[in-house]
Design a binder for these strands. Structure first.
Lengths: 132, 132
DNA sequence: TTCCACTTTATAATGGTTCTAAATAGCTGT
DNA sequence: ACAGCTATTTAGAACCATTATAAAGTGGAA
């Protein structure tokens, strides 16, 4: 249905696996953060067939390249992704490794005054580390 | 000399290896960013004896814990460290993976309006990704 | 000097991620 | 519906940064 179009429009074949991963990632009330391991678990819980780990990696990277997912810059042994692709920032709870979205209104506009020749700004991301 | 005191004051024994790594990291005109691999190379270039890779990891982590180094939150397969431990931000050149310091005056103050119960802010870090 | 906890070291183990190559499945044109 | 082509999936191997291990070495206090 809706995801078939979405995938086709971006040049990705709407395979069974991709559509199922779309359901898990995008057919939700709210956006969320995840690691590949967490996504693998969510997929296991929600669908009955098996999707190979390699396919999950492939798909997540394909979706990220198409702009349907964003990587979150955090130092961790795993890569964190976000289904919220709007410009926004994050709290990072060092205790449990959990992320919390920060609305732009919680941070205020960020104005980068310095320019680098021949480069343009692709993104501005703020990470606020939290401790007890 | 100066590094012996520094180490002793923070409860780290001033071993030959740690002092040599201090020379490479802190006896410089300017601060710099590095990965463990880059540091390993720098050490090979500057000293004649060999320091085990495990010792380099141990030392970098010990120095980070004591606040002599900072990790930079970037998504990369390697961990980036910074010898500039003042509060500041970074440009990240996606093309070559190089980091550039941003002065606070280049970014302006960042005021996080939202609070999380029972947590306090440890750091606020801005990463500005650059593309061509 | 002696002793002991701290440190270094080589090497193995770990674990997230990427690669490989063969099997499978969309899709287009007939 | 079918053939043929290319994209995709898959299991498993490979990769590689990082961490763990356990034995040897070292700093420093008494």
């Amino acid at each position: 249905m809706k995801f078939i179009e979405k995938l086709r429009n971006s040049g990705l074949r709407p395979t069974k696996q991709r559509l199922q991963i779309c359901e898990v990632l995008f057919n939700t009330e709210r956006t969320f953060h995840f690691t590949i391991n967490e996504l693998e678990q969510k997929i296991k819980d929600k669908i009955d067939n098996k999707i190979s780990l390699a396919t999950i990696y492939n798909t997540v990277h394909a979706f990220e390249k198409k702009g349907y997912l964003k990587q979150i810059p955090v130092n961790s042994n795993q890569t964190y992704f976000d289904t919220n692709i709007t410009d926004h920032h994050h709290f990072y709870n060092l205790k449990d490794g959990k992320l919390i979205d920060l609305e732009n209104s919680d941070v205020g506009p960020i104005n980068i005054k310095r320019k680098i020749d021949g480069k343009k700004i692709k993104s501005i991301e703020v990470l606020v580390k939290l401790e007890d």
